[in-house]
Each structure stands twice: as structure tokens, then as C-alpha cells.
């Protein structure tokens, strides 16, 4: 038996794949061949090292992060199977009944507090606004705030520092609680209405009534203080929350990474930009497939805006030095260019 053949035996040996006879063959050869003995030792050590590689885990629950998308996929499936596509009442209560209220609230509060849900951002923005109108008459505010806080606090503790997280979590709870919605019936069936199921579900669970308009950008009602670009600023909570995000690099990388998501007016595309990342990504709303990804670059993207005909998206890339560059994406040609 030559060294080449023994190499294979040694390889299988570290995987525990040899029978007794093969082991004996290998041992006999290695005993008389110092080179193979060294190789066996190295292989074994490498294999041991590989076995000890850290079992890394995501910094926050990925399932929580995609729940709104899953809810939307589900409602699309249901509305496709329903004969009358405008009958949202049949769709929404069913979604709700399938998930117990407590768990739903906990998940939503987690999602909102984490600030990572692109689809929710538009709605959240509006909820915040309706909060400003302070018609908070629904179920016990203190109770809800505490619930959101106590559930989320341990998760925050992992990546956030000091008391910043507790400041942010109840804040998210409040804006959620104050949601009170009147659902536009055609907003769920319409292709452009990706946030509608999530929003309506939330509103029903909170048992109050207010108005979420059709979730297209055009219909977002923006208060003066937010300016025309309010949808680009997905901050959900208060100033404290914003502060905590900017003061803790790790939390930006992890839990509180903010996302800007903007659906094209025709409802076909969703432009997505992460805070702290200058990369533009375009997804098809129908199946969430990634259609386009720009070159990877540092910095951030701001001022995302679709042209009314949906053929073009304009935005500004600010690099790490603060230099601004206007860019555009052409949806027909699926490419980025400098206008």
C-alpha cells in the first residue's frame, strides 16, 4: 500500500468512515512512514479545528424580520384563490384568527422596535403621525407599553448599551397602539398594496379605528415637519430612539439597521436601501426576487423617488466622505446610470 492510497484512508479515518480492517492497514503504514504520520496528525487537527468553528447565529430573528412578507405572501395567495378579489373582509379576519393576539403583538412590537421591516415603514410613518393627533383611546396604554418592553428588553440587551433600548421599545409600542385604521377595500387586492394586509391586521388587533390610506407613496399624508421626503426617513420612534441608533455602531449593524423601501407607482418594483450601505437593490414585488443589485459601495442612499411612469428611480448616493452623487436606475433596462 503506497502513501497515496493511505492518504485516502487517513481522510476517511478523520470522518470515522473506516472499518477495523482498514484501520489496521492504515495504522500499520503510518507506523513505518513518518511523513504519513505527520500528515495524519495535521489532518486530524484540522478536522478538530473545523468541528470547533463557532456556531454563529443571526443577531436578530430572521423569521421575525420576514413575517410581514410572509403575511403578505399568504394574503396574496388567499386573494388569488378568492373569487371576489375586492372582498378584503374575508381575507383579513382569517389572517388574524390564525395567530394568537399576544404572540402577534409581541412579534410586531419586536419588528417595529427593531426598525428593520421595509414594508412597514410607510405605515409606521403614518402611525407616528396619527399618534401626534393623540386619539389614543384604545386598550390600556401602560399595559401594552410594558408588554412590548419586557419582551424585547432581553433581546436588545445583547447588542445595545445602557438604557437606550428601553427608551426605544415602549416608544414603538405606543405608535403601534395608536394605530387605528380604516382599510381601503381595494388596497389589499391591488398589486401596489403590499403593506395593506400587515397594516389591517395590526389595526384590527389593536381594536381601534383610524385611517390608513392606500399605502402607495403618493397617498402618504405627510405632516409639515417631515417634509416631502418623509418616506425616506423610516425612523419609527422618538428622538431618543434615533439617538440610540446613531450612537451605537453595533446596533446599526444588527438590530436597528434601517431600511428604505419604495414601491414603484405601478406596483411592480420595490427599491430597497439599507442605512449605512450605498448599495441599491430592486426587488420584484410579485415574488420578492432580486432583480437588480448595484455595485457594492459604502455610504448611504437618500432621496429615493420613482418617476410617475415607474420607468426610472432617482436617488442620491452620499459616500463616506459626505460627497453626493445623483444616480438613477432604469427599470426597463435594469441598470444604474448617472443622469
Amino acid at each position: 500500500m503506497n502513501c497515496q492510497e493511505v492518504m485516502e484512508l487517513m481522510q476517511r479515518h478523520v470522518d470515522g468512515d473506516l472499518d477495523q480492517q482498514e484501520t489496521a492497514l492504515m495504522t500499520a503504514h503510518v507506523g513505518g512512514c513518518p511523513e504519513c504520520a505527520v500528515m495524519l496528525e495535521r489532518l486530524q487537527r484540522l478536522s478538530d479545528d473545523l468541528s470547533l468553528l463557532p456556531r454563529v447565529e443571526p443577531k436578530f430573528s430572521i423569521v421575525d424580520a420576514i413575517l410581514p412578507q410572509l403575511v403578505r405572501l399568504e394574503s396574496e395567495r388567499l386573494s388569488e384563490s378568492a373569487e371576489d378579489k375586492t372582498d378584503t373582509k374575508a381575507v383579513v379576519p382569517r389572517l388574524r384568527s390564525e395567530r394568537p393576539r399576544g404572540r402577534l403583538l409581541r412579534r410586531w412590537s419586536g419588528i417595529v422596535a427593531a426598525g428593520i421591516v421595509a414594508g412597514l415603514l410607510l405605515i409606521s410613518q403614518q402611525l407616528q403621525l396619527s399618534n401626534d393627533h393623540s386619539d389614543n383611546d384604545a386598550a390600556a396604554p401602560g399595559e401594552f407599553g410594558n408588554a412590548a418592553f419586557s419582551v424585547k428588553a432581553p433581546e436588545y440587551a445583547a447588542t445595545m448599551e445602557d438604557g437606550e433600548a428601553p427608551a426605544a421599545a415602549p416608544e414603538a409600542g405606543v405608535s403601534e397602539r395608536s394605530s387605528s385604521a380604516k382599510i381601503a377595500p381595494d388596497s389589499v387586492a391591488g398589486g401596489a398594496a403590499q403593506e395593506a394586509p400587515a397594516a389591517s391586521e395590526q389595526a384590527i388587533d389593536n381594536g381601534s379605528a383610524a385611517s390608513i390610506a392606500e399605502p402607495g407613496i403618493n397617498s402618504v399624508e405627510v405632516g409639515d415637519q417631515y417634509g416631502a421626503n418623509a418616506f425616506v426617513t423610516p425612523s419609527i420612534g422618538s428622538d431618543e430612539e434615533t439617538k440610540s441608533k446613531t450612537s451605537d455602531v453595533n446596533s446599526i449593524n444588527g438590530l436597528t439597521a434601517q431600511v428604505t423601501a419604495l414601491v414603484s407607482p405601478d406596483g411592480l418594483w420595490r427599491a430597497v436601501a439599507y442605512e449605512g450601505d450605498g448599495t441599491l437593490r430592486i426587488y420584484a414585488t410579485k415574488d420578492d426576487s432580486l432583480v437588480f443589485e448595484s455595485e457594492h459601495r459604502a455610504g448611504s442612499l437618500t432621496g429615493l423617488a420613482w418617476e410617475p411612469e415607474s420607468e426610472q428611480l432617482t436617488y442620491t448616493w452620499i459616500d463616506e466622505q459626505g460627497n453626493k452623487k445623483n444616480l438613477a436606475y432604469n427599470a426597463d433596462e435594469i441598470r444604474e446610470f448617472t443622469p
Binding site: 447565529e57 443571526p58 423569521v63 432580486l290
Partner: peptide
């Protein structure tokens, strides 16, 4: 989800890419 993320993380060698890939896989 942890198993999915772990594979993505070691294959892509990049945390954010791994998150994206794991999300895509779970969906």
C-alpha cells in the same frame, strides 16, 4: 433559521450577505 444562517454565513463569509441569503432561503 439558525442552521440556514450558519451555512450562509460560512459560505458567503459576510454577515449582511448571509442575512440576505438566509431570508431568501426561508421565504
Amino acid at each position: 433559521e439558525n442552521h440556514v444562517y450558519r451555512t450562509a454565513y460560512y459560505l458567503l463569509n459576510h454577515e449582511q450577505d448571509a442575512m440576505d441569503a438566509a431570508q431568501e432561503a426561508l421565504i
